[in-house]
Nucleic acid binder design. Structure first.
Length: 114
DNA sequence: AGTTTGACTGGAG
DNA sequence: CCTCCAGCCAAAC
Protein backbone atom coordinates (compact mmCIF):
# COMPACT_ATOMS: atom_id res chain seq x y z
CA UNK A 1 0.00 0.00 0.00
CA UNK A 2 0.99 3.58 0.35
CA UNK A 3 4.22 3.70 2.22
CA UNK A 4 5.70 7.14 2.02
CA UNK A 5 8.39 6.28 4.53
CA UNK A 6 10.20 3.65 2.53
CA UNK A 7 11.10 2.99 -1.04
CA UNK A 8 8.93 0.92 -3.31
CA UNK A 9 9.54 -2.77 -3.09
CA UNK A 10 9.73 -4.72 -6.33
CA UNK A 11 6.15 -5.82 -5.80
CA UNK A 12 4.92 -2.32 -5.18
CA UNK A 13 6.68 -1.06 -8.25
CA UNK A 14 5.09 -3.84 -10.25
CA UNK A 15 1.65 -3.11 -8.83
CA UNK A 16 2.12 0.59 -9.46
CA UNK A 17 3.05 -0.19 -13.03
CA UNK A 18 0.01 -2.41 -13.48
CA UNK A 19 -2.26 0.24 -11.98
CA UNK A 20 -0.88 2.90 -14.28
CA UNK A 21 -1.45 0.69 -17.30
CA UNK A 22 -4.96 -0.10 -16.15
CA UNK A 23 -5.87 3.52 -15.51
CA UNK A 24 -4.45 4.79 -18.77
CA UNK A 25 -6.32 2.11 -20.70
CA UNK A 26 -9.58 3.56 -19.40
CA UNK A 27 -9.11 7.07 -20.73
CA UNK A 28 -11.96 7.64 -23.18
CA UNK A 29 -11.24 8.66 -26.76
CA UNK A 30 -10.90 12.39 -27.19
CA UNK A 31 -10.14 12.97 -23.51
CA UNK A 32 -6.87 13.44 -21.66
CA UNK A 33 -5.49 13.18 -18.14
CA UNK A 34 -2.27 14.13 -16.39
CA UNK A 35 0.74 12.24 -15.08
CA UNK A 36 0.15 13.49 -11.56
CA UNK A 37 -3.47 12.43 -11.61
CA UNK A 38 -2.62 8.94 -12.80
CA UNK A 39 -0.02 8.64 -10.05
CA UNK A 40 -2.58 9.72 -7.46
CA UNK A 41 -5.18 7.29 -8.76
CA UNK A 42 -2.57 4.54 -8.57
CA UNK A 43 -2.15 5.39 -4.90
CA UNK A 44 1.25 7.06 -5.13
CA UNK A 45 0.93 10.84 -5.14
CA UNK A 46 4.07 12.74 -6.08
CA UNK A 47 5.15 10.02 -8.45
CA UNK A 48 4.18 11.76 -11.65
CA UNK A 49 7.68 11.26 -13.02
CA UNK A 50 7.40 7.56 -12.44
CA UNK A 51 4.21 7.50 -14.51
CA UNK A 52 6.01 9.20 -17.36
CA UNK A 53 8.85 6.72 -17.16
CA UNK A 54 6.44 3.79 -17.07
CA UNK A 55 4.60 4.95 -20.18
CA UNK A 56 7.79 5.58 -22.05
CA UNK A 57 9.91 2.56 -21.19
CA UNK A 58 7.52 -0.20 -20.16
CA UNK A 59 6.88 -2.74 -22.95
CA UNK A 60 3.18 -2.95 -23.66
CA UNK A 61 2.57 0.73 -23.10
CA UNK A 62 2.48 1.25 -26.85
CA UNK A 63 -0.80 -0.62 -26.96
CA UNK A 64 -2.29 1.85 -24.52
CA UNK A 65 -3.67 5.26 -25.40
CA UNK A 66 -0.70 6.77 -23.63
CA UNK A 67 -0.92 9.80 -25.91
CA UNK A 68 -3.96 10.75 -23.85
CA UNK A 69 -1.66 11.61 -20.97
CA UNK A 70 -0.23 15.12 -20.93
CA UNK A 71 1.41 17.17 -18.21
CA UNK A 72 -0.55 19.26 -15.76
CA UNK A 73 -0.41 22.30 -17.99
CA UNK A 74 -1.78 20.43 -20.97
CA UNK A 75 1.59 20.32 -22.67
CA UNK A 76 2.66 17.43 -24.87
CA UNK A 77 5.72 15.32 -24.14
CA UNK A 78 9.04 16.82 -25.23
CA UNK A 79 10.74 14.83 -27.94
CA UNK A 80 7.59 13.01 -29.02
CA UNK A 81 6.57 14.64 -32.28
CA UNK A 82 3.53 12.41 -32.75
CA UNK A 83 1.97 13.27 -29.41
CA UNK A 84 0.02 16.30 -30.57
CA UNK A 85 -1.10 14.87 -33.94
CA UNK A 86 -2.42 11.74 -32.25
CA UNK A 87 -4.59 13.83 -29.96
CA UNK A 88 -5.74 16.16 -32.70
CA UNK A 89 -6.95 13.24 -34.79
CA UNK A 90 -9.19 12.27 -31.88
CA UNK A 91 -10.68 15.71 -31.84
CA UNK A 92 -8.71 17.14 -28.94
CA UNK A 93 -8.52 20.91 -29.23
CA UNK A 94 -5.29 22.78 -28.72
CA UNK A 95 -5.10 26.36 -27.57
CA UNK A 96 -3.16 28.91 -29.60
CA UNK A 97 -0.23 28.46 -27.22
CA UNK A 98 0.08 24.79 -28.15
CA UNK A 99 -1.45 23.44 -24.95
CA UNK A 100 -4.40 21.08 -24.74
CA UNK A 101 -7.64 22.75 -23.74
CA UNK A 102 -7.83 21.00 -20.37
CA UNK A 103 -11.09 22.65 -19.42
CA UNK A 104 -12.74 20.72 -22.17
CA UNK A 105 -10.83 17.46 -22.36
CA UNK A 106 -9.52 16.62 -18.88
CA UNK A 107 -10.89 13.24 -17.84
CA UNK A 108 -11.51 11.91 -14.35
CA UNK A 109 -13.09 8.66 -13.16
CA UNK A 110 -16.53 9.03 -11.62
CA UNK A 111 -15.86 7.70 -8.12
CA UNK A 112 -12.55 9.43 -7.63
CA UNK A 113 -12.87 11.14 -4.28
CA UNK A 114 -15.64 9.80 -2.02
C1' DA B 1 27.57 5.44 -2.14
C1' DG B 2 27.26 9.95 -4.55
C1' DT B 3 25.69 12.24 -8.72
C1' DT B 4 22.90 12.90 -12.70
C1' DT B 5 18.73 12.29 -15.25
C1' DG B 6 14.05 12.79 -16.73
C1' DA B 7 7.12 11.81 -21.25
C1' DC B 8 6.60 15.94 -13.69
C1' DT B 9 4.77 20.07 -10.83
C1' DG B 10 3.95 24.53 -9.09
C1' DG B 11 5.65 28.88 -8.48
C1' DA B 12 8.75 32.88 -9.38
C1' DG B 13 10.78 36.30 -12.62
C1' DC C 1 3.89 33.27 -22.84
C1' DC C 2 8.57 32.08 -21.90
C1' DT C 3 12.50 30.27 -19.14
C1' DC C 4 14.48 29.06 -14.71
C1' DC C 5 14.34 26.78 -10.31
C1' DA C 6 13.58 24.06 -6.20
C1' DG C 7 11.29 19.94 -4.87
C1' DC C 8 10.30 15.53 -6.27
C1' DC C 9 11.80 10.17 -6.65
C1' DA C 10 13.18 5.83 -8.92
C1' DA C 11 16.56 4.53 -12.26
C1' DA C 12 20.75 4.78 -14.45
C1' DC C 13 25.54 6.06 -14.19
Amino acid sequence: MKDYLSKMTAEQACAFQADVMNIVSQIPRGRVTTYGLVATLAGWPSHARMVGRTLRYTPGAEKLPCHRVVNSEGRTAPGWSQHRPLLEQEGVAFKPNGHVDMKRHLWMPENLFP
